[in-house]
Amino acid sequence: MSRLKIKTIEDFQNDGTSPETLFWIGCAGSFDDRAKRITKAFVRILNSANISFGVLGKDESCTGDPAKRAGNEFLFQMQAMTNIETLNSFDIKTIVTTCPHCFNTIKNEYPSLGGNYDVYHHTQFINKLLEEGRFSIKGGTYKGKKITYHDPCFLGRANKEYSAPRNLIKKLDAELSELKRCKSKALCCGAGGAQMFKESEKGKTEINIERAKEIKENTSKIVATGCPFCNTMLTDGTKSFEENKKVEVLDIAELIVKAKDL
């Protein structure tokens, strides 16, 4: 695959310019093979809308979210302060990210440590571009198709953002078919609170399997979400579906890229 056009914030500085926004990629988006495809999809969207954006590259480091929620406040604050120093030294004002965990941490937990930015989840950012007339989405591939949506906890309940991703699904002319537990009542995928990095405690079943049961009851063949960790958990959870029940778990950015053939 060909390389996408990206510039680091340092490149911008060397040119004596500054980008409109920083794209905070996050650890999953940088290193996880599945999540890298989400990163690329969003870059394609930004490029097609001619948004000047920069990435931190080797200057980006974990926000500290999994450490904080595991209980390691020291490590979290070390990470946070280092990142805030970097962001402030580049005079960053606006941040967009495809990871709701990064989004939540930078938006809610960095301010009292000296990091104040306008933070967007990518679904919010794309909505903003639509409103400003800088980007458009037309039905195409998904016209009339049933798509269901899984609310990431850190975008939904944690930050009360239920409409931005749904609005984009509707823009695809797709039929949004809600899961039984959705919006503020959505069931977690099982990855949050550092669970992604450990075995779960003993129980009857795994949380992503429980969520997958609900996905199966909903007859959509496409499960949209807006979080790389939810993506992994739901892909795993739905893997065992019989051939005729198979579903595809896609990030909303990927849906848009496919619909627009970017």
Binding site: L4, I25, S30, F31, K36, C62, G64, L75
Partner: peptide, 21 residues
Amino acid sequence: NIENNGAPWPFNQQDRLNWNE
């Protein structure tokens, strides 16, 4: 991993842009 290489997995921070290879 976070402490040593700034990510919860054992990847090198210098490789943060490798997704675009």
